[in-house]
Amino acid sequence: MVAMRQRTVDRVAVDQRALSFTRRSIKREAKQTGLKLALSMVDLTTLEGKDSPEKVRALCRKAICPAENYPEFPSVAAVCVYPSMVPVAVEALAGHPVRVASVATAFPSGQAPLAIRLAEVEQAVADGAAEIDMVISRGRFLAGDEKNLMSEIQEVKQACGPAHLKVILETGELETYDRVRCASDLAIEAGADFIKTSTGKVVPAATMGVTLVMLEAVRDYFLVTGKKIGVKPAGGIRTAKQALHYLVMVKETLGDSWLNPELFRFGASSLANDLLMQLVKQMKGKYMAGYDFSEA
């Protein structure tokens, strides 16, 4: 275990810095490349009680080929579903590079006994999920039980086996950047492959500021250990413009080597179509109608 210094984070300055990334001017080739890059980083997500196998299959098709008329556009990174839908998604994505990610550990609240959460993870992995998005026990963490946070993540990591582990901090419930930073450091040390902002079920979800705090944690860990951890903002990122702002932030905080789906993802459902809309606009010089792109 690496001894890390307890960090404090200045909210005002972080938000100001985060805002500065939105002032970059991304035009022409840079925009085209950035939009494609962002598309390749999307985790297409459906996490609703009414999810049907049909909807998941539609989502999988969308993931493989986001716009049927433009086969040159990249596939998204993964499809993110509830554990019960993992078998459907695995079957639909068979033979394609798009990964199946499953939320687990009593998503979104995490309010279930650890044994049950671990069993859920094991089941999802056994069904073929390549990535597990777990939630942390925010209640115990906020009460000051940092040891519990470490040990539960370590156990989930073990239950994941070969699957990649994304740890959802649910930053909207942690409230302060100091807590976000602390949770990020602990999650990384406990073995997270990715740290993720939010479930999407709590407002506020991902913000530039909170993501910047997490990127800084990842960078500091890299400098000490040489290991690269991924980051996934999720929830609230709906437009191509927002996505480009995040890419600028990743580039200027971590460097270009983080600009790939192995290390950066967007958890979003409506983002993909806005990226497609802008990509086509770049190529054709005019906007298509919303219905020109399939729902998923």
Binding site: R24, I26, A30, F222, D256, S257, W258, L259
Partner: peptide, 13 residues
């Protein structure tokens, strides 16, 4: 190690 190569740069603006 971080800034190994430029994958994505801003076009002149």
């Amino acid at each position: 190690d971080l800034a190994a190569e430029t994958l994505w740069d801003y076009a002149p603006a």
